[in-house]
Design a protein around this nucleic acid. Structure first.
Ligand SMILES: [Mn+2]
Ligand SMILES: [Mn+2]
Ligand SMILES: [Mn+2]
Ligand SMILES: [Mn+2]
Lengths: 220, 220
DNA sequence: TAAAATTTTTAGATTTACCTAAAAATTAAA
DNA sequence: TTTAATTTTTAGGTAAATCTAAAAATTTTA
């Protein structure tokens, strides 16, 4: 059984490992909002417990045991987010912080029953996949909107930024999950992207386009 | 803002104060499952924060501020219990421990929306009243089953013991909330109580009878 | 490839919530 | 009303998760 703090470390290491094979002390410190010295201490403890592989100065990676613990927390986080949006009418930009707390509630039957109550959802309000109780989930094949070419079209199926500011912005633009979009132009000047969505022309910045994930269906 | 631990102390003091005006160090220690010396430490801290009134060796009592914080935790605990039973199909004997964790989730809007989602319930699965968001609730007027006389009847509206063992036992006897009962006899030998419920004669021990709460409707 | 910059670790403290053992105060009994 | 029992507090310490400052290792730059 892991402490609240240990669980947060495992989850952060898991997410960072999606980008780089082995995870750096500083990167963890930044995510956890703590100092590198504290991270080193905790990493040693997690290594003792067999949750991470750790070689001094070489970074850290999750063991199978650590990975499965991390996925379990991610599962809980995403299920609670679905609950908050589907049942309690939270907006998609309001759920993350509460889910950060709820994900640490320790009860296997609670999560299994919640999963059932929600109808075994496959993805959370941000399009992220929800692992099943065995930790299995489909690795989703997303393309960043920024990487599409003029004329390409697809469906918004995820976001790679969960900040309230970003999500509220998308909401205002009408760019929510499930929306069909087509790239109509890319501005030379600032690289902003012109898209067609719900019969409206919208201009979004490169920064926004980077964090919208599309499941492409090629040309219309 | 209180810590997880401070919240538990406030809640325990609140419940103990329902019996005795001022609460003893040892009583708190027993509830929290800790040592009296630790309780003294924490009481000092709570007094510093203005949450309890404390005079050395004289016991402790909640200030208005402390009381309202405690009631807020009780409200959360009971709302989560309703959620678990009504929405996730937990039994009434399975919810307490999970609610002990959920009650510490800090989000005002979460609880307000949960309350609404549940239809603003007035009592929890054990018959205990749920305070509204201002901390107000009706002081319920219960009589212990053990205090009824032969011939008296009433409705089971609460229990004063929340252990799983006790609740499972009641379930097996069919003595759940809302059931009509009538006292038919009291055994001289062991003081056990003979009752009529759902057209069946049941014998319950004094110990059980002490913890069943009845809203009496006099003679039938 | 040697110096500089960056990253990571160690050393030594701090805070929170505990503990044990012993002293002090209160309450009950003789 | 003194003694005994009980309750409560103090004194001194531990473990978990932090921190700052400084040392060590690695990586980058020149
Ligand atoms: Mn989230
Ligand atoms: Mn999410
Ligand atoms: Mn309860
Ligand atoms: Mn209850």
């Amino acid at each position: 059984m892991q402490s609240f703090t240990e669980e947060n470390y495992l989850k952060v290491i898991y997410h960072l490992a999606e980008k780089t094979e082995t995870v750096q002390t500083n990167a963890i410190a930044e995510q956890i909002q703590t100092k590198p010295a504290s991270v080193t201490d905790m990493i040693k403890k997690l290594a003792e417990k067999g949750l991470v592989d750790y070689i001094k100065y070489q970074g850290v990676s999750l063991t199978e045991k650590g990975k499965s613990a991390a996925i379990d927390i991610v599962r809980k986080h995403r299920l609670w987010e679905v609950f908050l949006v589907d049942k309690l009418n939270f907006k998609w930009d309001e759920v993350h912080d509460v889910a950060e707390e709820l994900e640490h509630i320790k009860s296997v039957s609670l999560i299994e029953r919640l999963d059932e109550f929600l109808g075994f959802p496959k993805s959370d309000p941000h399009g992220d996949p929800i692992p099943d109780k065995h930790g299995r989930f489909a690795k989703t094949q997303f393309i960043k909107l920024i990487d599409l070419k003029i004329g390409d079209s697809g469906t918004i199926t995820g976001v790679s930024q969960h900040s309230s500011a970003f999500l509220k912005h998308l909401e205002k633009l009408g760019l929510t999950l499930g929306k069909q979009i087509q790239i109509t132009d890319v501005t030379d000047f600032d690289g902003s992207v012109e898209i067609l969505s719900s019969d409206k022309q919208i201009n979004i910045s490169r920064e926004v386009a980077k964090h919208i994930l599309i499941s492409s269906n090629g040309k219309i």
